[in-house]
């Protein structure tokens, strides 16, 4: 309850353009939002660009936020939409990669020990389109229809990019596990 009150108090200040309130709100939300941006970006610099654009947009649209839903969820959607926009702007630089089909299945338990940072790096290393589709579908819970609309691709394109993204991630996880295992044995 206390936290809700604090957010509402900060929001009132932000709507009046109070810079201290804006900074406090930023400090409260930035780390979590940075975590989201990092998943959508190829590197840290790109993630910070998305974060910056997203926060400016959020402050400018604060009057549109109805106090009904979750404020964090609202900000999160702004970040994801900013990431989608950044992806669409940079669509020309999208590089296609050749991909060997990965049919081997991973055991469900083994890779749970991997560090979050390793997993993040794998997601960041995915081709831009795969990374977008994987994040939107697997983590954000968008449907293929929604992804197709947002990214300007077909539904079947979204499905195939998702399965390729999964296959690439599984392959990378497997490689990492093998390295990890070899190090332990030595």
């Amino acid at each position: 309850m206390k936290q809700t009150f604090t957010i509402e108090y900060l929001l009132e200040g932000c709507k009046k353009g109070d810079r201290h309130a804006q900074e406090s709100l930023y400090r409260a939300l930035a780390p979590k939002m940075m975590g989201i941006c990092l998943r959508y970006a190829a590197d840290r610099a790109d993630a910070e660009d998305i974060l910056q654009t997203g926060f400016i947009r959020m402050f400018q649209r604060l009057a549109d936020f109805r106090m009904e839903g979750s404020f964090e969820g609202w900000v999160r959607r702004i970040m994801v939409n900013t990431a989608i926009e950044a992806y669409r702007k940079n669509l020309r630089t999208l590089t296609a990669i050749s991909l060997d089909d990965v049919n081997e299945e991973l055991s469900q338990t083994d890779w749970n020990g991997l560090e979050l940072q390793d997993l993040l790096k794998m997601i960041q290393e995915l081709p831009n389109g795969y990374r977008m589709v994987f994040n939107l579908y697997a983590i954000e819970g968008y449907s293929h229809r929604e992804i197709a609309d947002e990214l300007g691709i077909s539904e079947s394109g979204s499905k195939s990019q998702l399965s390729r993204a999964r296959a690439l991630l599984k392959e990378k996880i497997k490689e990492l596990e093998e390295k990890d295992h070899a190090r332990k044995v030595r």
Binding site: R27, A30, M34, G35, L51, F55
Partner: peptide
């Protein structure tokens, strides 16, 4: 990734 968070650099603010 549910609770994943990371501090951005001070330049962002």
């Amino acid at each position: 990734f549910r609770e994943f968070s990371e501090e951005p650099s001070p330049a962002v603010w």
